[in-house]
Design a protein around this nucleic acid. Structure first.
Length: 199
DNA sequence: AACAGCCACAACCGCCTTAGT
DNA sequence: GACTAAGGCGGTTGTGGCTGT
């Protein structure tokens, strides 16, 4: 494991809430250097912030086309179902919700949906390590879902579907809600099968 | 009006993965 | 292949605002 340089420099770096001036500097610098080379951005911007901090600020706040607040019922339902499928893979879930950030979804889950799901009477699907929900069956032991060709084998079901298809964000159309209908159908079938099996 | 408790959200921390050398 | 730096991610914490007493 590499030495933790960010820890070493922690004391000298500016921390805490971002000012509008910092935001402007960061946005300008990203326009020039792009939103990829965060080390460069942090240096060139003149902000006394580490690259990780710049990245987070950009992704969660400054990035264009970010929707803030007012998560719709449709989005909420989608988050719940995606969480059931993917577990705490916030970045993947966020990838299916245009304009939403992983941090926002994570916060929304922890503050709203976690309780909501518990209230419904289902098994809590929180961030805890001991969770043994369907997501584990789907995601597999490795926890690296995206590296698998398919997760068909880990689901005790005759339902065949390719999760990678759901996780393929390369196409424009993948950002619509159409794909959700497909998943919801499969989800429903799985639920029925599991119910029958447990009886 | 003052205080306490709660909630939502921004930001940080630490680990893991990936890319470059 | 080994090592290092940087990026990415999920978990956690800090804090400001809101609400109830």
């Amino acid at each position: 494991m590499a030495p933790r340089k960010d820890v070493k420099t922690k004391k000298t770096m500016n921390r805490g809430a971002w000012t509008t001036e910092e935001d402007q500097k960061l946005a300008q610098c990203i326009q020039t250097h792009g939103a990829k080379k965060w080390k460069t951005v942090s240096i060139k911007s003149g902000l006394n912030r580490c690259g990780k901090s710049c990245r987070l600020r950009w992704l969660n706040y400054l990035r264009p086309n970010i929707k803030r607040g007012n998560i719709s019922d449709e989005e909420e339902d989608l988050i719940i179902r995606l969480h059931k499928l993917l577990g705490n893979r916030w970045s993947l879930i966020a990838g299916r919700l245009p304009g939403r950030t992983d941090n926002e979804i994570k916060n929304y889950w922890n503050s709203h949906l976690c309780k909501k799901v518990n209230q419904i009477g289902e098994k809590p699907e929180t961030s805890t390590a001991q969770e043994t929900t369907a997501q584990d069956n789907v995601a597999g032991d490795s926890g690296m879902l995206e590296n698998k060709d398919s997760v068909n084998g880990s689901i005790d079901s005759d339902v065949i579907f390719d999760v990678n298809e759901f996780l393929d964000f390369s196409t424009e159309e993948s950002f619509g809600f159409d794909w959700v209908n497909k998943f919801l159908e499969l989800d429903q079938i799985q639920f029925i099968e599991n119910t029958e099996r447990s009886e």
